[in-house]
């Protein structure tokens, strides 16, 4: 049987917010708009989190991208795919 290592870490809304802002600004948007979108996305993601005690990084990434797509589809695409460029 293949043994897998699972790294656990606490959810950090600041870290997520920085990543979302980065994805929005990577598409030439202004920082104020990026902050506004990030705040809205964090709100949506946290309502999805609810009282979940565990979730995967991939689930969080997909939920964040889906929430961001409502405001900026290009940024959502970049956020979802930036780790798959190579």
């Amino acid at each position: 049987m293949k043994t897998q290592i699972i790294r656990k870490e606490d959810y950090d809304s600041n870290r997520l917010s920085i990543a979302v802002k980065g994805a929005v600004m990577a598409n030439h948007s202004m920082s104020g708009q990026a902050e506004d979108f990030a705040a809205r996305v964090i709100h949506k993601v946290e309502s999805w989190l609810g009282d979940k005690t565990e979730f995967t990084a991939r689930e969080l990434r997909l939920q964040t991208a889906a929430a961001l797509a409502d405001y900026d589809p290009d940024a959502a695409y970049f956020y979802e795919n930036e780790k798959r460029m190579f």
Binding site: G22, A26, F86
Partner: peptide
């Protein structure tokens, strides 16, 4: 593609860093 992929990511990171 590799050089282009890195350039694309580099551009995104640079803009994201204000």
């Amino acid at each position: 593609s590799l050089s282009i992929s890195i350039l694309t990511l580099l551009s995104g990171v640079s803009l994201a860093n204000h």
